[in-house]
Amino acid sequence: MTSLLLLKVDSVIGNIDPRARLVSGFLFSVLLAVAQKWEVIAAGFLSAFLFCAAARLPWSGLRVRLIGLNVFMLALLLVMPWSVPGSVLWNIGNWTYTIEGVELALMVAVKGNAIVLAMSVFISTIDTASLGHALEHLRAPRRLVHLFLFTVRYLDILHHESRRLFRAARARGFAPRTDLHTYRTVSRLIGTIMVRSLDRSERVLAAMKARGYCGRFYLLHHFSLRMSDALFIMTVSVFVAVLAWMEWG
């Protein structure tokens, strides 16, 4: 059974402090999202790519995601240039497909790919439980962090349960089609998961209270910055600073 939560990423980046990765990923993405200049976007794409390669990220997972993204970007390339004014490439009556539009669509596509690469290397390598703790250390609201941690805890159980129920329905000859029977069946399967899970969460709460829970979680893991983390933060900062200087400097 594949677990949703354990993206086993055996790469050097796995040892870097999750907080450092979270902040790096955030800065990198924001900078790329805001950037308007081709040089900056291209350099950002290249550096995100380099970080992925340096971290030896497995390509298989990344490929699926990038294909999905670029199918959308292709649609963008087909549609967007019709609503950008500029020098005409083709026209149908009053509708014009412009070079400027193509350029803009390409820029969006490169940006999008760069951000996904940056996310993949910096943030998707953090396992979800550490992500919750990293958020707590970065002073996100306590209830939000707890909500996050509980959600993560339940996620695998539910994923498992949903697979089991759907399997059992298939064993009784259920084959999804576009019809009311399918929608009713799927809604009942999901509804069943929901109803049972809520009962379970009540039992979980009761069991937690029995062990003295009163609205606080204590963190077992404490992060502390090491030399390698400092080095990592410095490297990323240099990249981000150079990109920012190219954009605004």
Partner: peptide, 23 residues
């Protein structure tokens, strides 16, 4: 605080449901 486990469970259910594909 008491609502958190329940809300989290709902969040997880909706997340799981969003993975289901319907034709």
């Amino acid at each position: 605080d008491e609502d958190i486990p329940k809300t989290a469970m709902m969040t997880a259910v909706f997340f799981t449901a969003s993975l289901v594909q319907v034709p």
